[in-house]
Amino acid sequence: MTDLTAAGASRPVDATRDHYMVLTRRKRMYGGILIVIFIVLMASGFRLADARNAGGFWDGIHMFFDFPSEVVAEAWEKRANLPELFWQFVPSLIETLNIAAVSTLLGALVAMVVSLLSTRGLARFPRLIPVFRRMMDGMRAIPEIVIALILIFLLGGGPVPAMIAIAFHTGGALGKLFSEVAENADLKPVEGLRSVGATWFQQMYLGVLPQVAPNWLSYGLMRFEINIRASAILGFVGSGGIGYDLKIAMQWGTGRYDEVVAIFLLLFATIVIVDQTSSHYRNRLVRGH
């Protein structure tokens, strides 16, 4: 730079400016091409999806509010039933919440161990780090529904298949996040503990855990929010909890729409309350106070 200005001539400046303009133009062209490709992909994708759908988009769009209004109308007629129905579905709601909570806990326990084992500088067996990493990738990649459906075949219905399926996935997903946090942990406490002869477990429990606990807890809470949704969906596809009740009520169709509305409202309220509470606590955990 100093050389250029020292030369003082206008020609190098012109050349620089031309070069800059060429670069800018090229950048704009690339950007434009990318946007065109993106628009073409989106448009053709929607047309293709529309063509392969049983009912077309334009035929369906005016029916979008038909079903909700039908459901709400029937529920409004029977609104006197709602309080009683709420009580009726509270046990299933608790089951759904339990599935989410236990699978988050178990998944987090697995994730704690595996993430520490796969973090450079902390791992008990440094040579096995790639093995544990691939293991987490695999656990994350298998969708919950796959494990849940197979376990339903083996173990019968109920909450356990969903719990195991979600816990498995949670282990992989949290493991990755946990390990990213643990990578930034200060190694000095660990070295100090090692110098006085602490075992690996003691080093982790006393040296690393206090440092990473706030972030880990915050990720765990976020996962709990996600897992409530997952546990409701898995219930709908096959086992336990309020999702299953919803499926039964939906299959019955007209006549039980008051139940559908009761379940919708319970689920909605739960998700909103848990989201708000957990985001409040997450902010406190990560920002300190």
Partner: peptide
């Protein structure tokens, strides 16, 4: 966000039928 994917999926599949668009 609170209504959740499951419920949207049910409402939408009533309107548009089964398929990738839904």
């Amino acid at each position: 966000r609170g209504v959740d994917g499951l419920i949207w999926t049910i409402i939408l599949s009533r309107a548009f039928g089964p398929g990738p668009l839904t």
